[in-house]
Design a protein around this nucleic acid. Sequence first.
DNA 1: CACGGAAATAATTTCGAAAACCTGTCCACC
DNA 2: GGTGGACAGGTTTTCGAAATTATTTCCGTG
Lengths: 227, 227
Amino acid sequence: MAGTASSNGRETLASIAYQKLLDDIVGGQLQPGSKLRLHALTERYKVGNSPLREALNRLSANGMVQREENRGFRVSPASSEELSELIRTRCWLEELALRESIRRGDVVWEERVLLAFHRLSRKNRLFDEQFIQFDGTWEDLHRAFHLSLLSACNSKILLDFCSQLHEQTLRYRNLSSMKAYRERHELDEHRAIRDAVMDRDADKAVELLRAHYRVTGEIVLASGKLT
Amino acid sequence: MAGTASSNGRETLASIAYQKLLDDIVGGQLQPGSKLRLHALTERYKVGNSPLREALNRLSANGMVQREENRGFRVSPASSEELSELIRTRCWLEELALRESIRRGDVVWEERVLLAFHRLSRKNRLFDEQFIQFDGTWEDLHRAFHLSLLSACNSKILLDFCSQLHEQTLRYRNLSSMKAYRERHELDEHRAIRDAVMDRDADKAVELLRAHYRVTGEIVLASGKLT
DNA sequence: CACGGAAATAATTTCGAAAACCTGTCCACC
DNA sequence: GGTGGACAGGTTTTCGAAATTATTTCCGTG
């Protein structure tokens, strides 16, 4: 995700806690708005007080948890208003990044996109054939594909922002359980986006991408699990 | 800045440290790339180990400091490449937010812009008349003016991103000492932007805003204090 | 019965020191 | 002369407990 973390030698407890917390928040194991009591978390993740607090402070800085002075932390609440705002903003920023990528992307970029799509689709087929569940790996490949599309925009900062928005919307998707839809249609949508990108058809690619996000958003909204 | 901090009762030591650190990094008292040794900082800010670490972790999540596992923190380095990227990205995002604000802003928004400009220009005149230095207050009013322009974009997320970029570029401006230029021209530029905005002339407002940022960037680049 | 305030409880925040880690130095050895 | 491995000093990271702050409970009063 965003932030700056050069993973050098051994990983630090704070970073482990950060990753686990992020996974559990994005994965929906920790409900939106729920209180994050330090003592409970130390037992849950088997890490001490200090590393946990450091992890929570990092998360509070990129909006995954809220912090109230002297009252601790809670998972950021989820609302349909925020989801709308999230999708709207994501469409804006990714349109920007995608147009810029298409405009200045080179052959290496094209190959990155192609490869990322290939890996994702291969994983998809495995699901179809073997009826195994979507797991973390699929999400990683999915994220990698979407970021590859934008990766030639020549602004790491913008990419980080898009990455943050991806993570936030992923949380909403996981809150509603929309796995069924994804198995059915998402692969086709991704392929269409890839094709438009490879054709350097910016208008079409942007339109497909925006539709991709809008549809996803509406399904989540329609699931009725948000206030 | 970004992040989520409901300031409720008494302020926490970690938040105080966060604010002071941010001020010193943005203000240039802490040199880009310099190592942030815990012991030195505890003496400098008169706070203990833990609150300091929490502050640093927050700052690492929004890019003001870098973190290397088991090797501590350092102020994010500053380079002309990053400044270019910063300005480029800022132009993109603020164009977006400004166009959206002009499109959907209501009367209340117009009044916010007008008021913010008034306060800023009043402060400017005080400087001219009394030869006192730019201080923190001016920066606050300046930030408030720029954010007011974008404040009707209907996306708090986008506003937070713009706010982050503002802070980052402010650091670069403070690294080079470009006070002279600002006293001379910036007020006129701000007035022109305000007028274009009040006329709802999006193209003109965007062009002025982008020029405003580009010129500022070039002055900083020309100051030759970056690698 | 509602209201307000003091004590008790529970949570967060902070401190001081121990543990783990990185870095450079010195010396034996090839 | 160069290499590598143990050692020493300094730094970061983590722990356990103390200090501080919020929350609940309980009781007397209006």
